[in-house]
């Protein structure tokens, strides 16, 4: 097992190098002045541009630039904004909101996704199953953006059940609605994944063996069907945490929660390119880390994988 974990960790290193290289190449190494590009239409004083050139080592040769960029990332340096403030300082200020929102969404999708999937899968073709299929199709088809507006309008503006924006009411009141929207898509996926796997495994040969062993229905489902069915679900759940982090850009933007996603959202509006790139890079790294956790988790849950 420890060899398996070690191998996964080693395999993650080229991925981190690759993704950061892609970011570096697309943002800093393309022809033209990267700082002007990051500023969009915004006017920057020549002194600011010069300062940022220095901060981003843009006067060095590309390989040196990349080396300095990587060593900066390794030391938690995610660049500077146009005022010269470190992006890492902004991140430190904002991350608790995002983690709170992300965890709330994650718990919601775990509990309700699995529950709906089980209810649907156990009575395939029944009322609940049809309902879940319909509901998940709708949720998958309506973009999160639209879902957010819809919820904000109906539950916030019309019915006044939830605050429309901001975190004035604290957790959980201010976080609940954004968390539901953030979780919706993956909740639907998890429900479907649980359902499909459960249905597939109920017909598996080893479940037939379990019945032939004279085991009762609870044991057949609980021990011999569920564990196998939930392996892909659990791994998706870990992966989903990474997706949720990137979903916060839209949800925190729309509901105005002052987290990392909102930082990116506002930086885009204010054309603060370096902040966008810096924070997004952090979120990408978090995502890669959750991928690693998924792989390790897979090994823990499925013996066939870890003895590969």
């Amino acid at each position: 097992m420890s060899r398996y974990v070690l191998r996964r960790i080693l395999q993650t290193i080229p991925v981190v190098l690759g993704t950061t290289f892609v970011i570096f190449a697309m943002v800093f190494a393309l022809p033209g002045d990267p700082i002007r590009a990051l500023a969009g239409d915004k006017f920057l004083a020549p002194s600011v541009i010069a300062q940022l050139h220095k901060e981003y080592h843009l006067d060095d040769s590309l390989p040196i630039q990349y080396a300095k960029y990587m060593s900066g990332l390794a030391h938690g340096d995610f660049g500077r904004d146009f005022n010269g403030d470190a992006v890492s300082a902004l991140i430190r200020e904002r991350w608790p909101v995002t983690v709170k929102l992300g965890l709330t969404a994650w718990v919601l999708e775990t509990v309700f996704g699995i529950l709906l999937g089980l209810l649907a899968g156990l009575r395939r073709g029944g009322v609940v199953d049809r309902g879940v299929l319909l509901l998940t199709t709708v949720v998958i088809s309506v973009p999160a953006l639209v879902l957010a507006f819809l919820a904000q309008f109906v539950l916030g503006v019309k019915l006044g059940i939830f605050p429309i924006a901001g975190v004035a009411d604290g957790w959980p009141v201010s976080y609940l609605l954004p968390a539901v929207i953030l979780a919706a898509l993956d909740l639907a996926f998890i429900a479907r994944l649980t359902r499909t796997n459960l249905i597939e495994n109920r017909r598996a040969d080893f479940v037939r063996t379990a019945i032939a062993k004279g085991l009762g229905p609870w044991r057949v489902v609980g021990k011999h069907t569920l564990r196998n069915s939930l392996i892909p679900v659990v791994t998706y759940l870990a992966l989903s945490f990474g997706y949720l982090m990137s979903g916060t850009v839209i949800v925190e933007g729309i509901f105005n929660l002052p987290g990392l996603g909102n930082l990116v959202f506002q930086a885009i509006q204010r054309q603060e390119g370096p902040v966008v790139v810096g924070v997004s890079t952090l979120l990408v790294l978090v995502f890669i880390l959750t991928n690693l956790v998924v792989d390790v988790l897979y090994g823990v849950l499925d013996p066939r994988i870890r003895y590969d």
């Binding site: 395999q11 080229p14 991925v15 981190v16 690759g18 993704t19 290289f21 892609v22 970011i23 697309m26 943002v27 393309l30 990267p34 002007r36 590009a37 990051l38 969009g40 239409d41 990474g242 997706y243 982090m245 990137s246 979903g247 850009v249 839209i250 990116v264 885009i268 390119g273 966008v276 790139v277 997004s280 890079t281 979120l283 990408v284 995502f287 890669i288 991928n291």
Partner: peptide
């Protein structure tokens, strides 16, 4: 593996920011 390392929207945000 490298491109799987980007969540869809985030990858788009980073790269498109650099394209004015």
């Amino acid at each position: 593996d490298v491109f799987f390392g980007f969540p869809f929207i985030l990858g788009g945000i980073i790269i498109l920011t650099a394209f004015p």
